[in-house]
Design a binder for these strands. Structure first.
Lengths: 224, 224
DNA sequence: GTTAAAATAATAGTAATACTATTATTTAAT
DNA sequence: ATTAAATAATAGTATTACTATTATTTTAAC
């Protein structure tokens, strides 16, 4: 079992990078410390020059892996959703009851992220902070349609579709399964953000989790 | 009546700007063409230099109104939510039935924006595109807590709270009114975005509107 | 173990950005 | 007519987001 797990690699479209960062030690260091640095100083303040200093490598070497910092953000975001998808599939594949399956899926998506020792060079907690605080910047650009056609967001879309199908499996007459699925996934990030920064406009806190909130929501909607 | 309406000014916190752009002709031109330019080229590509050229004024003059382009985004975002709040209050104040009031509120918030001739120098349609595509960048920053303390987002938060209270008025045992209110407001923007760019993960299109989707959602939740 | 190729690092350079500061000119107010 | 305020012009700085070239190190092949 452990052997099997160690062989897993989250596959990200090769159109996002110039050279696969998973293929070399330097590539892994770029991803590892890139995540930590963005989490630390924010995406706006993040530069390849600063990252180069951090890992004692050169700016120009980083440019051989990623065209620019935007692509780097797309890459780590894509990795994150690939990882979530893997967890989702793993956690639900053996469940036969549709409602139970859906509830498990919502748990996987809405629960705060914990460290995953399987991927040594990636700090999943730092990455999930980036997902909450920065990931929407990966698609809120003027180039979104082009990049979408190039498959930059396909892992994310596939995850939404999986959840959407699980919603339909429980109630196939519900008319908005895709919108609800996208609301759950994006809304989870938003509630996590509000909980940290705008506490007055969320009910989520130490006691009430986004999981409870969205489970209740889906329950009400899917039953009526 | 008309006279009354013309006197209305959406009030934005004076900590956001250096000099009130509503107070001069140049200030209004900055806001007017700033909105059009950001809608056109995107916030990342937008600079005060380009805006200066556009309005045949000088970069340095624009800096006398706004410290930087981030504050400009905060300003127009804040203006937008102030405008929405005004519409919300206007559209609901005379309704006595709580459920009807709530439904009207959801309509105001989720319906696509139409031009409002009351505010001559502001193109509300262009502005609402900016809200969908750029506004989250106004708070997804490392400075969010500081700026929040300075009141940069208070109009937005007040709007969410109003909706939250309307939800509670209809069903005061529902445990997540603030989270649901924030989900509706943020989710509306997200569904509008998906409808334009990621059509496969939303059910919203020419026939199905975010209004229907969210009305159905709230109906299910608030009744159970 | 040598050689060649590939990867990485160092250096330099460019255009644009995001400003600040100073001075000049225009407009408005007394 | 004078003064003050607003705007515009100009110049300058540090940083960013790169590209290009060359040098050095590492690895892989024979």
């Amino acid at each position: 079992m452990k052997h099997l797990l160690q062989d897993i690699k989250i596959s990200v479209s090769d159109r996002i990078y110039l050279k696969d960062p998973e293929s070399t030690a330097l590539g892994k260091r770029i991803v590892e410390h890139g995540i930590l640095l963005i989490d630390d100083i924010g995406f706006e303040n993040f530069t390849f020059r600063k990252l180069g200093k951090e890992i004692k490598s050169n700016e120009s070497s980083i440019y051989r892996y990623f065209e620019n910092k935007h692509k780097f953000l797309v890459y780590i975001t894509s990795w994150f959703w690939g990882w979530k998808e893997y967890q989702l599939v793993f956690a639900t594949h053996s469940i036969s009851d549709d409602l139970e399956k859906l509830n498990r899926a919502i748990e996987v998506i809405t629960k705060p992220v914990e460290e995953d020792s399987q991927f040594g060079h990636i700090n999943e907690v730092a990455l999930s902070n980036i997902i909450v605080n920065e990931s929407s910047k990966s698609y809120l650009t003027k180039e979104v349609d082009e990049e979408n056609m190039d498959g930059y967001f396909s892992i994310y879309k596939r995850l939404v579709k999986r959840l959407s199908e699980m919603l339909s499996a429980v109630n196939d007459s519900y008319p908005y399964p895709a919108s609800l699925a996208s609301t759950i996934i994006e809304g989870t990030l938003h509630q996590h953000f509000l909980r940290e920064h705008f506490t007055s406009i969320t009910d989520c806190n130490d006691k009430i989790t986004p999981t409870e909130y969205f489970k209740d929501m889906v329950n009400s909607i899917i039953k009526s």
